[in-house]
Structures are given as structure tokens and as C-alpha cells.
Amino acid sequence: MGAEFVALSLPPILIGICVAVACALPGNFLLLRRQALIGDAISHVVLPGIVVAFLVTGLVATGPMLLGAAAAAVIAVIAIEAIRRLGRIEAGAAMGVVFTAMFAGGVLLLEQSDTSSVHLDVEHALFGNLESLIWLDATGWASLMDPVALATIPVELPRMALALVVICAFLFLFWRPLSLSTFDEGYAQGLGIAPGPLGLGLVIMSAIAAVAAFDAVGSIIVIAMFICPPAAARMMTNRLGHQVAWSAGFAALAAVLGYVLAGYGPLWIGAGGSVSAAGMIATVSGLILGVAAMAGPHRTRNS
């Protein structure tokens, strides 16, 4: 089973774990800052940016996609401010309108443009193509040590691993000011911590996670991973460091369990074929949240 597993299942599972953890880590802080919807918003807004970047460059590459996504985010912020001021509409409603409209615009762009040569389409945008990220040159566990074979590993894996390393480094370096300003912004400012750049850094980390993950797994799993693992982790502990560790654990568990269930679950219940791994991973993360909400030791406040 070794060779088949390493070639077919190991890369998607590792990519799934990287995506889930990369989204869950900044998600903890977004949740505690009551900005959980930012994760949702980012993953919607980036779609038109990614599509336009592809139309301009003709490549599915991280650099142009990140730039396109960043441009889309800037446009979104300007549009939200404009709607809020000119239309006198409440900020939450303005955000909802802009994010859904931009995502819908991205879907239309995708349908109309010729993206048949690469895997970039509407279904892809939602669910990604985790199952197809296979490593054809792998012959077994030994391939992990073989530079020639490693060169053909799906590019999504090193890309996602790099994003995860960047996010971990950011959180490690700025852990103190970030947690301090998340808890008590006024006090943090009194200490000379500038919450503006720090909050922007957090949003940028979330954007890096969303954009890097987008190509491999689609937007559904990104939205779920920003919120479900941290929310479940909050009910397991009353300490921030422990919560972040729990959220990473839950995210990895959802990725592995979701991938296995998507591949073999239908067979086990007697149905044929398999279901979307990304969809199943998101579902499992929701189930974990449900279990934590019913059985977690700190699910009620002040306990």
C-alpha cells in the first residue's frame, strides 16, 4: 500500500493539513477580535482578482494571483466605504453587498473567459481539486528522500507549506503585541504598540492563507477553516496559547479525517465513487465544532 499511498494520498493529505492549519492559526485572532467574517470576505473578494490576474498573465502562478487578490481587496475596501457614505448603509450590510457582488462577478468572469487550458473554473473556485494533486513519480516512502522524484511533487505542496511557515513566523514574532492588542487595544496603544499595522499584518496573513489555499482547495474549505477550528478550540480551554494549539490540532484532524471519509466513506456505506474532499473536510470541521459545543469543558462562559 506504501507506493500507492505516497503517490496518490500523501500529497493531498499534506496539502489539506497545511491549508487547514494556515487558515486556522490567524482565524483564532480574527475570531477573538470579532472579525471572523474577514476570513469569509477575503476568500470571496479574491476570486475576481485571481481571475483577472490569470486573464492578464495567462498563468496560474502565486505571484500574479497574490497581486490580483490584493488589488481586489483594495477595490473592495474602497467600494465598501463608498456605499457606506454615499448610500448611508450600515457597514455590515455594505460589506455583505460588496463581497457577494465581487464573488458573483468573479464567477461570471470565469464562465465567460477561456480557462479550459488550465484548471480554473467555477467548481474549482468552490471546491478546488485536492484529489487530483497526485505525485506520479513517487514509488514509495523512499521517494521523499529522492531529489529527482521530489522535483515533481505537486507545486501546491511547497507553496502551501511556505505560506504556513510565513504565517507561523508572523505569529511567533508578534505573539505578545498581537495578543495584547486583541485583548485590550487601548492599553496596548498606551504601551506604544500601534494596533493599525498589527491588525493589517493579521489581515495580510489571512489573505496569504486564503490565496495560497484557493488554487488547491477552493473557497469553501478556506471559509470553514478560518472559523470552525478556532471556535471549537475556544471551548476546550481558557488560555490563548492552548486555544491556538487546539485549533491547529482540530484543523489537521479535519483535513485527514475529511480526506479519508471523502475517499472511502461512500464505499463503506455501500455507495459507489467518492465525494469532494474539500467539501468533506469543511463538513468534518463543522462536526468537530458541533461536538465541542456539546461536550467541550469551557463551552459556557464564566466556568
Binding site: L32, S179, R234, T237, N238, L240, H242, Q243, N302
Partner: peptide, 8 residues
């Protein structure tokens, strides 16, 4: 001014 449910 702060959220006392914060995990700390």
C-alpha cells in the same frame, strides 16, 4: 472597554 471572556 475589554471582553472579559477573552481566553486568558
Amino acid at each position: 472597554s475589554v471582553d472579559w471572556d477573552f481566553p486568558t
